[in-house]
Amino acid sequence: MNFFLLLLTILPFMISCNGKEKVDLSKLNLNEPIEKVINFNNDLLVGVETVEYPFCLLLEVKNSEKYSFEDIDLKGQKIIFQINSEKLKTDSIARFGGGHIDLIPIKNENELKNNLKIFNAENKIYGIRIEMKTPSLKSGILKKIELKYGKGSKNPNTDNGLYWNVKKENKYIFFAPDYDRLIVLNNTNLSKTCYWDTFNGLIDFGECDSEKYTQELVKNSIKPEDVKNKPIIKVDNNWSINGLILGKSNEEDFEKSETNKNFERMEEINGGTGDINQIIYQKDYYDFYFYLSANKINPENKKDNIIKGYAINNFKKVEISFENGLKAGMKFNDVVKLFDKKLIIDYEDLKFANYIEIKNMPYKVTLNFDENMLFSGMYVK
């Protein structure tokens, strides 16, 4: 065997051993097994993050040198893979609005499989979301896409967004520079007339029935009109709830309170260390959740497990009142008028949003709005 043939034989092995081989995300069919597109040596997080997209499971890769797009190096950019999950097609679990993040680290194949099982998720990807932090990266990626697919269609919902419906490849491409994202999806099992996420808004590919589309996204939801014995909730001017004070009331206080009826206690475990990240009391039927910090030394000491937040995801499933003038079902613009502009995070960007974030140090209050921009849920943490 001459030297050239020998080199060709061992080169792939050398590249693999040195960890230099990159995955060109533009070349993926977006139906690959998850293990084929990730490396467990990277920082991996899996779970729900409704800032990105609420009706599927997300697998986030941070600080990786593994990826490129049309030969453009993506080192330093966050990569997110979308995974179909039937369990998350419900507002009861995933429709927290714009501010809910529930991602946990995974270190190995077993932890991945366990999380896929929890969410009834497939073991393959159907989409990618690529972070684009810099103007040069945005312009470089856009040139590559336009060279391959031509000029995109203007996204009417954002200032600079574009999209492509690549029918011959069964792909949707969404260039969302206002939110530092490129999104590419295999649309084989997606709607061919509508698309929605928080960064693109509702896209009509032609004959889009938005009501029917929304119903399909949350097809496994409990209908609010079928909910009985709704919890009674009173939110005070400091955003504490039913007398339970954020940052002060502990797990023992919660257990003794009138609010604690039929809540399920869960512990969120750090897959790498085995430590308890937080304690969650959940009432899935009512979309009602409390989040508590866990004592690092003795999490069974309930006096030291402090309430740090809560979520009420669908006001139609509870009886809720506010001391500060808010009312369930209020219009977006009417809610904005209730607060000082200085307290609203990214006030100038509200025209793009379906949620409002309010400073309430050390907490952040997220007010969520439905497809009609009516006040429909909230998250405090």
Rank of each mutant, 00 (worst) to 15 (best):
T273I: 09
I245G: 01
S221A: 15
K261A: 05
N242F: 07
E264S: 15
S257T: 08
K234P: 00
T259V: 04
I241S: 01
K248L: 06
I222L: 14
K230M: 05
E251Y: 07
F263I: 11
T273L: 08
I241K: 00
I232G: 02
E216D: 15
W239A: 07
K219N: 13
E258K: 14
N242S: 08
T273D: 02
N242I: 12
S240E: 03
E216R: 03
E225H: 05
I245V: 14
K230A: 05
V227L: 07
S257Y: 09
S249D: 05
I232D: 12
N237R: 15
S257E: 07
N262L: 14
K219H: 12
D253M: 01
E225G: 00
Y213L: 08
L246Y: 05
K223S: 14
N250A: 03
V227Q: 02
E264Y: 12
K212C: 02
E264P: 04
E258R: 11
E267D: 14
N238G: 08
K228D: 09
V227T: 13
D209W: 00
K219W: 09
I233H: 04
N242H: 04
G272D: 04
K228P: 00
C208E: 01
D253S: 11
G271P: 00
E216K: 07
F263K: 15
Y213A: 06
N260S: 13
C208I: 01
G243R: 07
N237V: 11
K228Q: 11
D236C: 11
K234F: 11
I269M: 10
G271N: 15
K223Q: 13
E225K: 15
K234S: 14
K261G: 00
E264H: 11
D253A: 04
K228F: 04
V227F: 03
G274P: 10
T273K: 03
P224L: 06
S257A: 05
I241V: 15
K256H: 11
W239H: 12
I269K: 08
N262V: 09
K230L: 02
N262S: 14
